[in-house]
Amino acid sequence: MAVLEILTYPDTRLSDPALPVTDFNRSLVQLVVDLQETMLVGPGAVGIAAPQVGVAQRVAIVDVSPVLEGDRNRKPKSSRNGRLVLINPEIVERDGEVTGREGCLSVPDYTGNVLRADAIRVQASNELGESREYHCHGFESRAIQHEIDHLDGKLFLDRVMSPRELFRRKAYK
């Protein structure tokens, strides 16, 4: 088990598309464990993707439970699927749109508003190579899209909306 070093922008490895996983072996299981441990060290992170630790493979974890289980009365609108291990994930269906504020372990000291699909259907393998399908919406859906962007070499900075554009979307919806 190890907490891995998180790459931060402008490290160019964050822009490289990751390669599909073909071998579901012990080192993959170890990578998932290390990613999990690294994510938990990050300040309030709900997901992490392998390219953020310099591993160019299509592996990500999402777990929004800590945020949804907070003791506030108003929790983010979201599906709950617990801890998701997403290997070679594909979004096969998208519906609606939702804006939300995002930050990133790889982009310290910046948050911005991003437009995402509200509901998604995502297919992925787990670390044992078993196929899974998840229906997600809201906060969880946004988190998955954020992580899949990392696998495609994209950061949320590529999608940030101007405050004025957000104003118009929110005010005149």
């Binding site: 992170a45 992490i48 999402v62 995002e102 930050g103 990133c104 948050t111 906060f139």
Partner: peptide
Amino acid sequence: EPIDILVG
């Protein structure tokens, strides 16, 4: 509306 910042 609460703003829930997503960090990932």
